[in-house]
Amino acid sequence: MAKASRGILIIYFSFLIALMLSVMPLPDNLQWWRPEWVVLILLYWIVAFPDRIGIGTAWVLGILLDVLEGNLLGLNAFSLTIVAYITLLSYQRIRMFSWAQQALTIFFLVALNQFIAHWIKGVLGVSVQTMMFLVPAFVSALLWPWLFVLLRGVKRRFHVV
């Protein structure tokens, strides 16, 4: 029991780091290249513990992200909920994938997240004239193998089960 609760603390701590990384000040030109930290780390934990981390966690994370970024409340919550659902449907396949296949899957999932978020923003009148919002999906996919190894290290080091 004590072990399990410590494990969940480690997971929540990684979410906290992800939230901080996603509002970290960056130079203007680098803003476009910011990976979607929250989606990445959420996806890792869903694939690792689909029975514990799921749609509910995704929703709460989304609300927190919305508050931090000053978005319409529920915008990221909605996109993360959908992404989390798709991941829950296919986590067994993702586990079996090779690095390249995993990265490609991550690209599509993050891209979906970006699409949903920017569709809603477009409806609200934020002008979205370029496809540049897909750059984070690309960066996230490139980052995935390293993040995967890092989080797997964290999982083993702290015996998160």
Partner: peptide, 17 residues
């Protein structure tokens, strides 16, 4: 839960707007 949480998000978005 997908249904519950996505409807919840839509409701929150509507309310916030």
């Amino acid at each position: 839960s997908l249904l519950i949480f996505s409807i919840l998000s839509l409701l929150v978005m509507f309310a916030d707007y």
